[in-house]
């Protein structure tokens, strides 16, 4: 079985976003950009399925500016076999990305597509579900456990009330949650090897997908800032404060 893993290049999760003074967005110039953490988990899960003998080939895909190649090289260094970069400058909305991925799925015919549940830049949490809809496939979102058994994948999902397990007919879509696995670091030899793994370059036009955004961002601003309050010196003082708040 082939597994397709879409990955997105985003502001590194350790960095605090800076809103641009003109309100046009978040400043991404001269800052570290990395693979979306949920996508790293997706790549790792695909590799583990390959190591278990369930998957035979892992294809990583990214849609974004030319530098997304670096993100794909990271996926290849972790253990993906080849990569597809669909170069697009500017906004790529989840719906357009899902349409591109559908076209790639039609070509590649994977048995499983594993995606991050959300990208930590726009926090949309949409692409996997949208891709599942466009393909008419079942979806196992927010996965904390993935088990392939024959023609079925059992996905344990992190839901508001606890955990839920669903059995999905393959081919299917899985989106990853935080506790599915701990992604590995690529070793230096693997980073070197990744440089010679195949990486195909495409454009949205190759797949006939219109990337025109449906949503216009009018303004991006800083959230209201909380002011640091006071420090109390003892538990007794804290008890008094809680009593003043009417909660004790």
């Amino acid at each position: 079985m082939k597994i397709l893993v879409p990955v997105k290049r985003v502001l590194d999760y350790n960095l605090k976003p800076r809103v641009k003074a003109d309100g046009s967005g978040v400043d991404l110039a001269n800052v570290k950009l990395s693979m979306n953490p949920f996508d790293e988990i997706a790549v790792e899960e695909a590799i583990r399925l390959k190591e278990k003998g369930v998957a035979t080939e892992i294809v990583a895909v990214s849609i974004g500016e030319a530098k997304s190649q670096e993100t794909l090289r990271t996926a290849l260094a972790m253990g993906a076999d080849r990569a597809i970069l669909v170069t697009h400058d500017g906004v790529a909305e989840p719906l357009a990305v899902a349409k591109l991925l559908k076209a790639i799925v039609d070509e590649e015919q994977p048995g499983l597509v594993i995606l991050g549940k959300q990208a930590i830049d726009d926090d949309s949490n949409q692409t996997g579900q949208m891709l599942a809809a466009l393909l008419g496939w079942a979806q196992g979102t927010f996965a904390s456990k993935v088990e392939v058994e024959g023609e079925t994948v059992n996905v344990t999902r992190e839901v508001d009330g606890g955990l839920e397990t669903v059995a999905l007919k393959l081919p299917a879509i899985v989106t990853t949650d935080l506790r599915l696995n701990e992604p590995r670091y690529a070793s230096l030899p693997n980073i070197m090897k990744a440089k010679s793994k195949p990486l195909a370059q495409k454009t949205p036009a190759d797949y006939g997908v219109d990337m025109t955004p449906r949503i216009e961002t009018l303004n991006v601003s800083e959230p209201p800032k909380r002011q640091a309050g006071i420090k109390v010196g003892s538990v007794d003082e804290l008890v008094d404060k809680l009593k003043a708040l009417g909660v004790a």
Partner: peptide
């Protein structure tokens, strides 16, 4: 809507 874990707030207009 909040973006970047609420570190930025975006006002957006849809054409759908």
């Amino acid at each position: 809507r909040p973006i970047y874990a609420g570190n930025a707030i975006a006002q957006v207009k849809t054409s759908d």
